[in-house]
């Protein structure tokens, strides 16, 4: 229902943009852009009540050297926009069995724990989402789990066809700490998933680009199952494949605890 309402809103925005007309009654275009981004985040990072997916990341240098990060992602949505992540690394060999657990909060620093199996040690990790690479990939933590909608000022720039899909192009300028000065997102008008993103630095130069390479319908939820982030400046890129994605699998709260970190739940990791 919500999606449908937003689609209508979107359609009106599109008309308003194309017709060069005044903004919608009761809502400025700025707010419309923000709600569109919010809807996009919902579709991209919060689909379902929970998610289980085997994530395979390939890190590629310009010279063609490859490194793999193979992990099981368990994600659960909580009340108030909070989320919990349990990321169990199957590979590479030197981090096998490592677990990263994240409690994600809107507009607040996340809580992050790391379990190191060789030491049977649970650590707290101090890291800032916007400024830290996720396990050495071209994705930051924010790229993986989403950035607060309020952390940027969003503006609808135009509508644009991307292949066969109609998108809305949104410009986001950070009001809080970010590793970009400007970001452009091409948001699918039907699924609300970002099909393309471009990150610009303070000099206005493109330095990082995201593409959604494959979108599949999983249990009625459109899901990006292949994506790529390219560091335009270094030529390094990271390709991510989501395999065996399943929503609403019934992850319990007991999974996201220190006790489970030390003794990862076999049945969810296969």
């Amino acid at each position: 229902m919500m999606e449908r309402v937003l689609l209508v809103v979107l359609a009106v925005i599109v008309v308003a943009q194309e017709g060069g007309q005044a903004p919608l009654r009761g809502a400025s275009p700025l707010e419309d852009a923000a709600s569109l981004v919010r809807q996009s985040q919902e579709a991209f990072h919060r689909a379902g009540t929970d998610l289980k997916a085997r994530v395979k990341m390939t890190l590629l240098t310009k010279e063609g050297q490859q490194r793999l990060r193979d992990l099981m992602m368990l994600r659960k949505n909580e009340a108030g926009g909070n989320q919990r992540y349990f990321l169990y690394f199957h590979g590479p060999a030197d981090v096998r069995g490592t677990v990263l657990m994240v409690y994600k909060y809107p507009n607040q620093e996340d809580d992050r724990w790391l379990f190191i199996p060789a030491l049977n040690l649970v650590q707290r990790v101090a890291a800032r989402d916007s400024r830290s690479s996720f396990v050495g990939s071209d994705f930051s933590y924010e790229d993986i789990s989403g950035r607060d909608v309020e952390a940027d000022t969003h503006t609808v720039l135009r509508t644009e066809a991307l292949g066969s899909r109609q998108t809305v192009v949104i410009e986001s300028v950070p009001t809080r700490e970010a590793d970009y000065a400007k970001k452009l997102s091409w948001i699918d008008q039907v699924t609300f998933l970002p099909l393309k993103e471009e990150y610009y630095d303070v000099q206005g130069a493109l330095y990082k680009a995201f593409t959604a390479d494959e979108i599949r319908d999983v249990q009625g939820l459109p899901t990006i199952t292949k994506r790529t982030m390219t560091n335009v400046k270094t030529g390094h890129k990271t390709e991510v494949v989501f395999e065996s994605v399943a929503y609403n699998v019934g992850l319990g709260d007991d999974i996201f605890t220190e006790r489970t970190l030390r003794r990862p739940p076999e049945k969810w990791l296969k």
Binding site: R124, A126, A127, R128, R131, S132, S133, D179
Partner: peptide, 10 residues
Amino acid sequence: YQRQLWEDFT
């Protein structure tokens, strides 16, 4: 006390 001061530096 631990803190990330900039990217990949703790």
